[in-house]
Design a protein around this nucleic acid. Sequence first.
RNA 1: GCCGAUGUAGCUCAGUGGUAGAGCAACGCAUUCGUAAUGCGUAGGCCCGCAGUUCAAAUCUGCGCAUCGGCACCA
Length: 639
Amino acid sequence: MVNLTLPDGSIRKYDAPITGADVAADIGPGLAKAALAVKINGELADLSRSITEDVAFSIVTAKDEDALEVLRHDAAHIMAEAVQELYPDTQVTIGPAIENGFYYDFAREKPFVPEDLEKIEKRMAEIVDRDEVITREVWARDDAINFFKQKGEHYKAQIIEAIPEDQDVSLYRQGDFIDLCRGPHLPSTGKLGKAFKLMKLAGAYWRGDSNNEMLQRIYGTAWTDKKQLAAYLTMLEEAEKRDHRRLGREMELFHLQDVAQGSVFWHPKGWTLYRAVQDYMRTNLEAAGYVEVNTPQLVDRKLWEDSGHWEKFREAMFVAESEDRLLAIKPMNCPCHVQIFKQGTTSYRDLPIRMAEFGSCHRNEPSGALHGLMRVRAFTQDDAHIFCTEDQITSETKDFCDLLLRIYKDFGFEEVKVKFSDRPEVRAGSNETWDKAESALKEATEAAGLEWTLNPGEGAFYGPKLEFVLRDAIGRDWQCGTLQVDFVLPERLDATYIGVDGEKHRPVMLHRAILGSFERFLGILMENYAGKFPLWLAPVQAVVTTITSDADDYALDVYEALKTAGIRAEIDVRNEKINYKIREHSHKKVPAIFVVGKREAEENKVAVRRLDGKDQEILALAEAIDILSAEAKGPLSGS
RNA sequence: GCCGAUGUAGCUCAGUGGUAGAGCAACGCAUUCGUAAUGCGUAGGCCCGCAGUUCAAAUCUGCGCAUCGGCACCA
């Protein structure tokens, strides 16, 4: 007898062995039909998996989140089956479920072309209609290796060779197709349904290593029903509409041009936005006790050799020559900040020193990595280095986390995740130092009220780090902020302070950024707001426009009054219908339109129409300006 | 950097070897209109670049460059 504990706590007793399919059938015919997989002690497994001991048990149906993972994994297998039927010279490699879908990497001489996707998709539908039964088989390793080798599936053979000795080698069979796979899978191909679509072709390195050959990856999306698929495709369209490159053009914010690959041409409106963000940051940093500095663009290679960057990042650094000297265009600011720190003598009483710079940096990113504002070669960091004692790490970290969270909130990002990266295998500094740094960092993160997940071994070689990931309005995650504890650079560049004991000591450096880079963060902001910026960020905050030319003089008065109040305003007295003008300014995403006609001119009022779709209000001019001015101050007014 | 696709008017795109096209935007004229598209007209092109094939190339071939989608990279 085995006891199965169901999610509601009830226990069902069966004669062992029994399968999930048997249990589902026992509970009811409806469930037997809907069952896709089971969860045994929290782990997904096949319906056909035999149960021989007491376990926590649940049946997975299309309603469960877990079902999607199984379903997508199946979609990958069905795609592989379709591909091998259509193109028998193709080797299969790996094909996992991923967020929103799945992919499969294939090895084939001739690349796939976009038209192939249609054919493959059609064949997949046929395989679903065939409703092939999916069965699991456990093979002896050597048999499996020989089997795949003899089939010409060399990648699969390699994968099996890499499976640890103590693990089963499981194969899944559906029709004539058999693939190595950990599972679990659906009971038959028919259960996949038709809510899938192949999305794109891409190259991908075997085992993710750029030294290896490149395989051909096909991405697809799969859902439990067509409604979900349609919703997903609509979401993608929406995301495309808010693509910052498109908004940048439509809203005249910036442009990119091949004469300056990876560098941004900021247009007047985009630069206004940039400055609004920068002013906001500057005010916040000053209030948080930072001092602002500015350091050279061109710095002799010697400094980069001393800091260690030359050795590690030489390839990605731009250089310039002058007489006999080789200069690097700075890829980061920290070595320069250390130079400022080292001028004169610093006492323990001066610490912490929080040195900030809107540091303009250049990195020669690989051409294939460039992407709009999100990945550029010339960018400005909201960089700062906190020089402090080891005892100050905790409080400085906590203060930083508080500041960061408040700033993200002001930009409309409420949801922030924190990743904690601890010591990597290859590292500098003693274990005691790392113990101290890691526990100080953890303690501070928790004191700031943040939950974190561990990113084991991903710390910098010089110290542990925190990475801050914010979630945007359509659920995408962006890693922006970082805080890194560094014991190494002060050592390499010989930074010291005089302690209570009158002796020289090494300060600790905290490298930290909140936005990351202005370029990227502004791109994220554009997409987050879909270009509909809150008033304090909007490049044009209000447009005054007329119904007929009778109101032109009054419109000019209103415009002047807005300018005087510090509002970024424009005026539109073109001889066009009011509908036309409203439509146009709404498309330009101007947050406030002041419509004036004869009535408003006579009564010294304005009809205020807001972009957010609220009803228009007729207000006295002075009142309207007060409301707008208050809003235009943004979060700075409240804090 | 690697794999694949794409590159035609400001934008979105059509045009498969024989005179370069549409819609929107722009400009001009008329229209003075009350909350998301007034009408008519005009102008606009090194068809990404360089070679080649051809009587003839936006179109075919080769080589570049850029962009897009991924992969790899990201101090």
